[in-house]
Amino acid sequence: MEVRTIKVFTTVDNINLHTQVVDMSMTYGQQFGPTYLDGADVTKIKPHNSHEGKTFYVLPNDDTLRVEAFEYYHTTDPSFLGRYMSALNHTKKWKYPQVNGLTSIKWADNNCYLATALLTLQQIELKFNPPALQDAYYRARAGEAANFCALILAYCNKTVGELGDVRETMSYLFQHANLDSCKRVLNVVCKTCGQQQTTLKGVEAVMYMGTLSYEQFKKGVQIPCTCGKQATKYLVQQESPFVMMSAPPAQYELKHGTFTCASEYTGNYQCGHYKHITSKETLYCIDGALLTKSSEYKGPITDVFYKENSYTTTIK
């Protein structure tokens, strides 16, 4: 009895394709271990004539594949690729409408935090270190965002349907971005203890939790000093293409032309909904596939993004 075979390709990165001759009487799992086709788990399936010449994702289970996976995804987590594939199996079914010149995501599976993050990423200057993220990001900007969303979920250790947080998501993504040249110098002034300067680099240099107003941050924000008295913390120097200011959701007025974009969060910790506000020729609110415009805006804002380049204080 002759062994019926077909020729397929296996890959971990969709760049390096490895030619395989597979036995049609055995499952993919018996031949390769966990195997995925377009995100779908085909591990328990036997090869079919229609699979001839198709590319299958496999887990990096030998040295060659491990090197290829690390170079593309910059992670050695053995569960990463499987999590990416199972997320992709959902995100490829989502709709990605162009809204006001940006790629958004039609609401499904509690994905409003991903839509808000995706919209924000198209408006701030950011370059990702893992080629996987950078490639998928370019495709997302062009309207094909399924891979990018699935990668975000995998890097953030999230599953489809789980509630997510924009600030946490951005923080994970910033860790995989090139923020080497970003720098922030802060000064804390206390009447009792004097003053202390701190220099922050990388992710810490672009994120701040405690106030939404970048102007206020430049002037000074009140913080408790270690001595128990009130101290003032203010920005001395900022070198970065953008800054992200966050605070627990509270009524906040966004003035046209003073910011790049913002995240609105309605609801409580267990259950809520994100919308995205962007400042173009007027203010726009993007909620999944829905767009509304207004000249002014007041609502429960939790993150505001500002364009920056270089700032030095005039406070002496």
Rank of each mutant, 00 (worst) to 15 (best):
V3F: 14
V3T: 12
R4L: 12
K7E: 10
V8W: 06
F9R: 10
F9N: 14
F9P: 05
T10I: 09
T10R: 11
T11S: 10
N14Q: 13
N14Y: 05
H18V: 07
H18E: 12
T19S: 14
T19P: 15
Q20G: 10
V21D: 13
V21N: 14
M24T: 11
M26W: 14
T27N: 15
Y28D: 05
G29K: 07
G29I: 05
Q31D: 07
F32W: 08
G33A: 05
G33Y: 07
T35H: 00
Y36D: 03
D38N: 11
A40M: 13
A40I: 13
D41P: 12
V42D: 05
V42I: 11
V42W: 14
K44T: 13
I45K: 11
K46H: 12
K46Y: 12
P47R: 04
H48F: 12
N49I: 13
G53T: 10
K54Y: 15
F56M: 10
Y57I: 10
Y57N: 08
V58F: 04
L59A: 14
P60Y: 06
N61S: 13
N61L: 14
N61Y: 14
D63K: 06
T64M: 13
T64G: 12
L65H: 08
R66S: 11
V67T: 13
V67G: 13
A69K: 00
E71H: 08
Y72K: 08
Y73Q: 06
Y73S: 05
Y73P: 05
T75M: 10
T76K: 09
P78F: 08
F80H: 04
F80P: 03
G82Y: 08
R83A: 09
Y84W: 04
M85P: 05
S86Q: 15
S86L: 12
S86C: 15
A87S: 08
L88Y: 14
N89D: 11
H90C: 12
T91H: 05
W94F: 01
W94N: 03
K95C: 12
K95E: 15
V99P: 07
N100I: 07
G101L: 04
G101I: 04
L102N: 06
L102Y: 08
T103H: 07
S104A: 11
S104K: 04
S104V: 05
I105F: 02
K106N: 10
N111Y: 04
N111G: 00
L114N: 06
A117Y: 03
L118Q: 06
L119Y: 03
T120S: 10
L121S: 07
Q122A: 03
E125K: 08
K127P: 11
F128D: 05
N129L: 07
P131V: 04
P131Y: 01
P131I: 03
A132M: 02
Q134R: 13
A136D: 05
Y137M: 10
Y137S: 07
Y138G: 14
Y138L: 14
R141E: 08
G143S: 03
G143L: 03
E144A: 12
A145G: 10
A145P: 10
A146V: 04
F148I: 08
F148R: 02
C149T: 09
C149V: 13
L151A: 03
L153Q: 02
L153W: 06
A154M: 03
A154E: 04
Y155V: 02
C156N: 07
C156H: 00
N157G: 12
K158C: 01
T159G: 10
V160W: 02
G161V: 02
G161W: 04
G161N: 10
E162C: 01
E162N: 02
E162Q: 10
G164M: 01
V166D: 04
E168F: 03
E168K: 09
M170F: 08
F174A: 04
F174G: 03
H176Y: 15
H176N: 07
N178I: 01
L179S: 05
L179W: 07
K183E: 07
K183V: 10
K183M: 10
R184W: 03
V185C: 02
L186C: 12
L186V: 15
N187P: 06
V188Y: 07
V188W: 08
V189C: 11
V189K: 10
C190M: 01
C190L: 02
T192Q: 12
T192F: 09
T192C: 09
T192E: 13
T192I: 09
G194C: 06
G194N: 03
Q196R: 14
L200C: 11
L200K: 10
K201I: 11
G202D: 01
G202W: 00
G202Q: 01
E204L: 07
A205P: 02
A205R: 01
A205D: 00
V206W: 02
V206K: 00
V206A: 00
M207Y: 07
M207F: 08
M207H: 07
Y208M: 09
M209H: 15
M209V: 15
M209G: 09
T211C: 11
T211I: 08
L212K: 04
L212M: 04
E215K: 07
E215V: 03
F217W: 06
F217S: 04
K218T: 05
K218Y: 01
K219N: 12
G220A: 06
G220T: 03
G220V: 01
P224E: 11
C225K: 01
C225R: 00
T226R: 14
G228F: 02
Q230L: 14
T232Q: 08
K233I: 12
Y234G: 01
L235M: 03
Q237T: 13
Q237D: 07
Q238A: 05
P241K: 09
P241G: 10
F242E: 02
F242W: 08
V243P: 01
V243E: 00
S246K: 01
S246A: 01
S246P: 00
P248Y: 15
Y252D: 00
E253P: 08
L254K: 02
H256F: 10
G257R: 05
G257D: 14
A262K: 00
S263I: 12
E264C: 07
T266H: 08
G267C: 08
Y269V: 15
Y269G: 15
Y269C: 15
Q270P: 02
Q270F: 04
C271V: 07
C271D: 01
G272C: 00
Y274V: 00
K275V: 14
I277S: 00
T278R: 07
T278M: 12
S279H: 03
S279Y: 01
E281G: 08
L283K: 00
I286K: 00
I286C: 02
D287P: 00
D287S: 02
G288K: 01
G288W: 03
G288E: 02
L291A: 13
S295W: 10
Y297Q: 00
K298D: 11
K298Y: 15
K298N: 13
K298I: 14
K298H: 15
G299K: 01
P300N: 14
P300I: 15
P300W: 13
P300Y: 12
I301R: 01
I301M: 00
I301T: 01
I301W: 00
T302D: 00
D303V: 04
V304D: 00
V304R: 02
Y306V: 00
Y306Q: 05
S310T: 12
Y311P: 14
Y311F: 10
T313W: 12
T313S: 14
T314M: 14
K316S: 15
K316L: 15
